[in-house]
Design a protein around this nucleic acid. Sequence first.
RNA 1: GGAGGCUUAGCUCAGCUGGUUCAGAGCAUCUGCCUUACAAGCAGAGGGUCACUGGUUCGAACCCAGUAGCCUCCA
Length: 879
Amino acid sequence: MNISTTYSPIETEDKWYSYWLGKGFFHSEPDDREAYTIVIPPPNVTGVLHMGHMLNNTIQDVLVRRARMQGKNACWVPGTDHASIATEAKVVAMLKERGIAKKDLSREEFLKYAWEWKEKYGGIILKQLEKLGASCDWERTRFTMDADLSVAVTDTFIHLYNKGLIYRGIRMVNWDPQGKTAVSDEEVIRKEVNQKLYYIKYPVVGTDDFIVIATTRPETIMADSAICVNPRDERYIDLKGKKVIIPLVDREIPVIEDEYVEMEFGTGCLKVTPAHDLNDYELGVKHKLPVIDILNDDGTLNEKAVILVGEDRFIARKKIAKLLDEAGLLEKVEDYKSQVGFSERTDAVIEPRLSLQWFCKMADMAKPALDYVEDGEVKLIPEKFGNTYRHWMENVKDWCISRQLWWGQRIPAWYNANGEWVVAATQEDAIEAFNKAGQDSENLVQDEDVVDTWFSSWLWPMSVFDPSVCGHPEKEGNADINYYYPTNDLVTAPEILFFWVARMIIAGHEFRGKAPFENVYLTGIVRDKLGRKMSKSLGNSPDPIELINQYGADGVRVGMLLCSPAGNDLMFDVSYCEQGRNFANKIWNAFKLLKGWSENTVAIENAENKVAIAWFDSRFNEALVEIESHFAQYRLSEALMAIYKLVWDDFCSWYLEMVKPPYQHPADRETVAATTFFFEKILKLLHPFMPFLTEELWHDEIFGAREEMDCCIVSEYPKTAATDDKLLKEFDMIKKVVSEIRNIRNSKQISPKDPLPLAIKLNSEIDYTSYLFVLNKLANLSEIVFVDDQLKGGASFMTGRDEFFISLEGNVDPLVEFDRMSKELVYLEGFLDAVNKKLSNERFVQNAKPEIVANEQAKQADAEAKISILRESIKTLLI
RNA sequence: GGAGGCUUAGCUCAGCUGGUUCAGAGCAUCUGCCUUACAAGCAGAGGGUCACUGGUUCGAACCCAGUAGCCUCCA
């Protein structure tokens, strides 16, 4: 084994990952054991690992590895989703590089290229997860566009359509005129832009007056259906029932009234353009206004605009401003800042556009999904997300599920020449359905759109096990789904609580009558040190693979978790990875020490070490109880910190220093055996967080010969056991005594090499005799004596009620000691005063719980005792 | 505009049902150490008006109201 002074991750990581794979430790098949299942939130197939994935998957791996060690049949199902929009964009870009335009390809040709792209570049991210140590069952890897998962999507569509839960309707979409496609809200980047606010005069019919409207989009006046004012606006009372004329095109439109209009904005008059603005559209529906769409799909004006036909919308804007000005109808132009949406991909200004889309009705399906969370059958962690969830589920909007793309599952709707349609899995089924309805079934065409990617991923916890149950609630399902479903934990980001989590609960309820998971752990957002979200465009995100190369996978895993409080955002900084790496190194070196001992042992009795061994045994169990409680509450970073302190402080700084043989002396066999045993337990505790380092050390010969399947990854996780509380308490006192002596050394500039004489004046029940060896070793004492009277002329301190004295010839300034003691006395007197006040307060004694009053009385007695000791000490000092 | 959340040491965060010597941890800082496991380390120390204002209570970091600042989601 390597005995370098630093742990070198590179040499161990690939080795053990392939070993685990080779032995099939990640693979799961249903059996008699309790299942522990996680399905991965499928990353985008085009994606590369970013810090968010890093956090999310580290958490999942910790949970899975721990469950596996607890003897559960652990199954972590990996996979990717097809991400229609992102993937299609990548394929379009690839084609462009090869000089091919998407519009020159048929759908089939394009899809061929897309699959080619997916096979070649897709799924890089899964390879990257291996570097992190993710113990996924790779034999179960799934893709949302696998043939059977696509059938699941189609069947689900048909099922919901037949139940009347899917319908077609008009909707305003985000249109990218350059990409000629609709994009989702998430792909619209809002930026503040300097614009102009144009004040346009509309002549009022039958008068010589004008009404002035402020707009940023003068090129859309030809699409106006009305002018709207607020009914409470006294400036415009006269306009009631009047009509106005759209400048340049001379079309008459009515003046309507609606509370929606903000009187303070612009002139208080709003032009209503239902075809080109979402709010205007809704206003139009409310007031039954006609919809006039004057734009082509490439952003140029069409013949409905009457003027400037064929011009691009922005050129038209400039030209129309000029035309209005020339006609004397442009009152003024102001500078104006506002938020404008840009396409993430083409950077074109997004155009709100009406189109016919497919929708999924949500209200009825949302109800049971809300109940799961309200009733606690599905737990959201942290709980605060329950409020957000309820609010959303009670105000749920219908889900627009169609996308104007090719990459994805094509909507199973078929149209005949008369515009009639049926929903069917295949063309044959469609013909049959048309015939049955007595409708024309010649020349059928399938809907050109695909369904939203979420429409695949909401089936994920079912479809990875048995896609055939999706769309078929009556089916019993295969052995896998009956064993693994419902899964245990889901680990994901709060941003997709509604897009994904809620919908999975809905789908799970619809097809299995059960929610797909018990616990949903919502991680925070990874931000940089300055609190900014990590993003590609800001360039503030480190490359996770680079970090792994630099700090080791274990170091990065620890670093991630150290700064990730449950449910809160985390301010990531590489210094956390450094801390993780240092921790790995600390463990490595502790191991080196132990290994050195085991190579030179003798069979001698070492009674002195027995108490230290008993103490660490208790301390380990005490820490384990705390760690288990953190895990039960999904407080992973606190569980990790508790382990960190157990290892670094208790094991390395205290225990190892206590039992360490003197330099160049052999170690006794019993101590080595006990320490080896402790070390192995520590490796187990650490394994879920630091899988590589622990596996590497696990196989060292000091633990004896290992069978090939005897690996840390499948070792039995430690179970809590009884603690000796008296021993733990007394050891705390001993540690305090040691620290006090070290403190005296430090402040008096005494070398740790110079032994000091210690005198103890016992005032408590503690029996120090069994700890003298430890005291002597850790504090380097020349002698320890028990005394009845306080000693003069040395340094002194109190631990509990016991007094300790160290004679220091000529090294102590009585004035300094006096000062220190006086300060302590003042503090104690103040403290006692506060306690006394409480106890003499009748209402306190009456109202407070008895144990709290008893506690105050104990505090009082303790303080009184200490004060009298201190007073005596001061007196002694002054004599 | 609607909803939710956050504010505790220089930084990142714990702090349970209001009551322990309760104001804590890790990192960073400072002081002293190359003490043969570890300088990626050891030993020790300093550091806070618990955002602000008021209220409830015998008692508030914790409960209530308001104010300020920051964040997220929805529109």
